[in-house]
Design a protein around this nucleic acid. Structure first.
Lengths: 83, 83, 83, 83
DNA sequence: ACAGAAATAAAAATGC
DNA sequence: GCATTTTTATTTCTGT
């Protein structure tokens, strides 16, 4: 792990790694920008950004996982008189 | 805020918006994953992830901004006898 | 906003600010440690950490707020045939 | 993992655990809030939050560690002709 | 422009 | 000790 510390760093190799990451981050930020545009457009049609985001979030959760988690959770809620 | 609540929501329109966002988010997360892979690969070659991130961060700031920030930090450090 | 940059920094004042923050952060990390201990103790009695955390999270949500949010969300879900 | 699922949960015991954690988390969040206030107050006096955080971070690292980190960073920067 | 909330990134802890 | 998951910190976004 500390190999690089004592070695000469392979300049070209490092440069390539850095530039690859920077290119990917650039692409990522372009997409983030695109997403913002979609929200802005939706908002101008009368949709609420916050609720659209809620829907997206909810759809992301895998249904099966949600049910499994719920089963155990219910048990605890009953024990706490919250259900 | 409550306009949509009282209107009929244009189902197909909403669906398209949601799906467009989801597609873009999917692309974004693939790229995020690619970035992680580059770091992992770099690590396996002996580079330190934390330092690579430091470099990326430095390169993102432009030179002038970086100098300003450092100048301010130095000022504080001197005041605290840390420099 | 850039006032401090051109002024001499009031050394004692800065020192006090820094030390106040450091003291608070120290307190915070002691409490974080205490929380970890409670979980560890609970775990040793047979409780699942993950589920305890779920319960804590759920109780944090204000019930009223949850219902309000749900009402609007339902509308969208119906529109999307998810409900 | 599933032991608790098949047992009767000791209601009072569980309640106490949950409430103990909640009390500690409440304390923790009060302190977090206090810290924010200190930063806000400092900001209103003309200090820069970002720089204060830099100082705190530097003081947290011990000298040796800081030097090691900087040495590694310099190595990378030199290889990239950034220094 | 700023405060507050949400999302992302970084750091820390846990389990293997 | 590494890798995955959780927690914390930073950044970004949104509404005022």
């Amino acid at each position: 792990m500390n190999m690089m510390k004592n070695d000469v760093i392979a300049k070209e190799d490092l440069k390539q790694i850095i530039e690859r990451i920077e290119r990917l981050e650039e692409e990522k930020s372009i997409i983030a920008h695109d997403i913002k545009e979609v929200y802005a457009e939706a908002k101008s049609k009368g949709y609420e950004t916050a609720t659209l985001k809620d829907v997206i979030r909810l759809r992301k959760q895998d249904v099966h996982e949600r049910e499994e988690k719920q089963a155990m959770l219910d048990l605890y809620l009953v024990a706490l008189d919250m259900k």
